[in-house]
Design a protein around this nucleic acid. Structure first.
Lengths: 161, 161
DNA sequence: GATTGACCTGAACAATGGTTTAGGTTGCAT
DNA sequence: ATGCAACCTAAACCATTGTTCAGGTCAATC
């Protein structure tokens, strides 16, 4: 049907292909789809078929994960794109700038904590009421009962580089 | 029995008192005990009675939490103390120095990530194979399938300042 | 002695980010 | 046409850090 050169370009990807190319487990792709982070068409036999754009989307997800953005927020950000399309360079620019700010703030909080900790080491002040380390709230203290966010990237335990 | 001045000093604390003084919920104290982070005696009626040392122990736990040390590691560290006693100033010095190093490393990883992200913003390189952001492993990449660690301190939702 | 608040236990639930398992279907190759 | 790998779903499970609930006990006060 299509010319030979276009054949590979237009070809829809199976979930296994996306897993291999993105380095994300098939189960994770299913999970992302349930959470509305990615989308797929279905083949006649109900199997997922992905547009190549999904690779970029997954790449964005992976970077966001490393930054520590919870999936729910990534989902919101991706859903906020006009026409729910995959992020292009401009979209990525906006997203990454926002997330870099969050990352910056996180680094600042941790740095402040580290400095307080350094002050505190060896002083035994953990017993004192006035210890800054024991009394957050200066500029620290971050709420969010449901919104924990992890830190690590957590490579695939299975394999898939 | 004991002199009036010593009465308050020797008095064992109930779980409610520890909760109030430490700013940690009773349920959390139960949880910490199940995990071996704190210990208690029992009254004749099977109620927990805490030595005042537990307050210091809980303080250490709270600081470790803010740093992002998982409870299992805190438990190990506290268990590693000679005679399983509550940490004194010297113990705290050792612990906090170790944890400060971890915090430092974490800050370094995040800073590196932020710099990569800054480089990446607007360049659209998310599509390129060579993008450093998409290819961790330079000095990043942190394993550990079971050992996620959170970031935030998570103030008590109930109350208890 | 009765009431009330604090306490006890064990189990279920919550949130995040998935993996694993069980049982069944598709799709491609031979 | 048959076999095998890859796919499908739903539900259960893992880890972490607790909270909440149900059902019952303890302790102090009136």
């Amino acid at each position: 049907m299509s010319r030979v050169t276009a054949a590979n370009i237009d070809k829809a990807l199976t979930v296994g292909e996306v897993a291999e190319r993105s380095g994300v487990a098939v189960s994770a792709l299913h999970f992302y789809e349930r959470k509305g982070l990615i989308h797929s068409q279905r083949s006649a036999g109900n199997q997922r078929r992905y547009h190549r754009d999904v690779l970029r989307r997954v790449a964005v997800i992976k970077v966001a994960q490393r930054i520590g953005i919870p999936l729910a927020e990534v989902a919101r950000a991706l859903a906020g794109l006009p026409e729910a399309r995959s992020p292009n360079a401009r979209d990525w620019s906006r997203l990454s700038e926002r997330w870099r700010q969050e990352l910056d703030e996180r680094i600042q909080r941790l740095t402040q904590l580290r400095d307080q900790l350094s002050d505190c080491i060896g002083c035994g002040c953990l017993s004192m009421t006035a210890c800054r380390l024991r009394n957050p709230g200066d500029e620290l203290s971050e709420q969010g009962p449901g919104a924990r966010r992890w830190e690590g990237p957590r490579e695939q335990p299975g394999d898939a580089g």
